[in-house]
């Protein structure tokens, strides 16, 4: 199973095994990662699963889509070029080792 590492705003790292096909948000929820709220459960109707993809991974993960980029306007913390809604990143074999940083707040 691919590994995904979440690094929260305090710098605490948590590495978990992710199921292929799950979103990074679902992976976080399944492992009780605090920094992801995911109010809407993946419907792209909120911006509470905001995450920053580590620079080294940004190309592989790709940028936010148009609707996603619009929704990121509602994110509680600063939106950067590497910002994504983690519900829209699907775990695949080629993302093994993915690192995402979590914002200080989701609301």
């Amino acid at each position: 199973m691919p590994k995904v590492t979440f690094i929260d705003a305090d710098g605490t790292e948590t590495t978990v095994a992710a199921k292929i096909g799950d979103s990074v948000m679902q992976t976080a929820m399944a492992h009780g990662i605090d920094g992801i709220t995911a109010e809407c459960g993946g419907a792209m109707a909120c911006a509470t699963c905001h995450a920053y993809v580590a620079d080294d991974w940004a190309d592989k993960v790709g940028p936010a889509g148009e609707t996603e980029a619009d929704m990121l306007d509602f994110a509680a913390c600063e939106v950067k070029p590497t910002s994504r809604l983690s519900c829209q990143i699907v775990v695949a074999e080629n993302l093994d080792g993915l690192i995402v940083y979590l914002p200080e707040h989701q609301v």
């Binding site: 709220t37 995911a38 109010e39 809407c40 459960g41 419907a43 109707a45 909120c46 509602f74 609301v107």
Partner: peptide, 21 residues
Amino acid sequence: KNPHQSFGSGPHHCMGAHLAR
């Protein structure tokens, strides 16, 4: 921290949440 559930969660998450905020 304020992880309240007043807008619900899941597929029925409040559509007016952003508007209200």
